[in-house]
């Protein structure tokens, strides 16, 4: 199930053509310190994680600063479901963290 989700994120995020049109309507990018706070950044960070990348501090800031307003989807020429990618990546993070916590707990005990 989780692996299906990971695969879906990978497939959907791979459609990104890096045009950046989504950034022109994103309400958060203007207030963030860099492109990671815009839809193009989020999609590509989600892709990075789905391909085995780490949940770094910036990755989490990027994914959790999204308001899920979906304005970006109106501008995306590849019709990527960006809010769904963000939601799915958050689910993945919760599940992966949970698994990690269980492993740590087992080691401790």
């Amino acid at each position: 199930m989780l692996e299906d989700l990971r695969e879906w994120i990978k497939e959907e995020a791979s459609k990104c053509m890096f045009c950046g049109f989504c950034e022109t309507v994103c309400p958060t990018i203007k207030f963030g310190p860099h492109r990671g706070y815009g839809p193009r950044g989020r999609v590509n960070i989600a892709l990075y994680i789905s391909e085995g990348g780490k949940y770094t501090e910036e990755a989490l800031s990027s994914l959790y600063s999204c308001l899920l307003c979906a304005a970006c989807t109106l501008k995306c020429p590849a019709n990527i479901d960006i809010p769904e990618i963000v939601r799915a990546s958050r689910v993945l993070y919760s599940e992966d963290s949970l698994k990690e916590a269980i492993v740590v707990e087992k080691k401790v005990s």
């Binding site: 053509m17 890096f18 045009c19 310190p33 860099h34 492109r35 990671g36 193009r40 950044g41 590509n44 960070i45 892709l47 990075y48 994680i49 990348g53 780490k54 949940y55 770094t56 501090e57 910036e58 990755a59 990027s62």
Partner: peptide, 18 residues
Amino acid sequence: KDKVSGDEALLSIYSKDP
């Protein structure tokens, strides 16, 4: 320090093009 980053996830964005 707020003007530079070596965060791998962030670098993945700045390493690509259309």
